[in-house]
Amino acid sequence: MSTTAASYTLLVRFRVRTGAQAAFDALTARTVDLIRKHEPGTLLYAIHTTGVPTERIFYELYEDQEAFAFHERQPHIQEFLAARGALLQALPEVTVLTPTAISRRTAQTSKGDRC
């Protein structure tokens, strides 16, 4: 995975309705599985929880803006976008990230560094 200036990265904050967390998490799990299977230009799509029970943070890394555009056109993403509305308190907050410095380890490098 090469992350260069051409890569396209998003940080998306979701505020889920109280009581809808399990449904939102199930929806995202199904969607992430389809992203993994059908989107070679999506390099990383990670969903995180925080100390706030109704908050979810998505970290999305795409090969480039074309890979992001491809992602947005996929049927599973269109289904996610349509279904998520009823589960959210508000519209998601989207931040486009621009790398200024990158340090990256591969799984092989990380294993070799351990004592």
Rank of each mutant, 00 (worst) to 15 (best):
F24E: 02
A22H: 07
Q74H: 05
E79Y: 14
R30F: 07
Q74I: 03
D113L: 15
A22N: 04
G51T: 09
A101V: 05
F24A: 07
L91R: 07
T9S: 09
T95I: 04
L44D: 06
A82S: 11
L34W: 10
E93Q: 13
F80Y: 12
I57P: 01
D33M: 10
L91Q: 12
L91G: 07
F68S: 00
I35G: 10
M1N: 09
R104M: 14
Q74T: 06
T31R: 06
R84A: 09
A46I: 11
I47T: 11
Q74W: 02
D64T: 03
Y59V: 09
Q108N: 03
R56D: 01
A67D: 00
S110Q: 12
L44W: 03
I35S: 07
Y62W: 06
L43R: 03
T4E: 05
R73T: 03
F70K: 02
T18L: 09
L11P: 00
L88Q: 03
A26S: 15
Q21R: 15
H48T: 08
A86F: 10
T106H: 01
H71M: 01
T50F: 12
Q21Y: 02
Q89I: 10
Q74Y: 05
I35L: 10
P75N: 12
L61M: 08
T28C: 12
L87G: 05
G19N: 06
D113R: 15
K111N: 08
P53M: 09
E93S: 12
Q65E: 15
L44F: 08
V96E: 06
L44S: 09
A83P: 06
V32G: 03
A5P: 02
T31E: 05
Q65D: 10
A83M: 08
D113E: 14
R105K: 04
E55A: 04
T54S: 08
G85K: 07
L88Y: 10
A90V: 07
R105D: 07
R56W: 01
K37L: 13
L61D: 01
A6P: 01
A69N: 08
P53Y: 14
T31L: 02
L87Q: 04
K111R: 13
E39V: 02
G112P: 05
L34A: 09
K111S: 12
I35V: 15
R15S: 12
R114Q: 12
E63W: 02
L11T: 01
A86N: 02
T95F: 07
V32F: 04
L43G: 01
P75Y: 06
T98D: 04
I57N: 00
E60M: 03
T106F: 04
P92L: 13
R114H: 10
T4G: 14
F24S: 04
E79A: 13
R13V: 14
T18M: 13
H48L: 15
K37C: 12
I102T: 07
G85R: 14
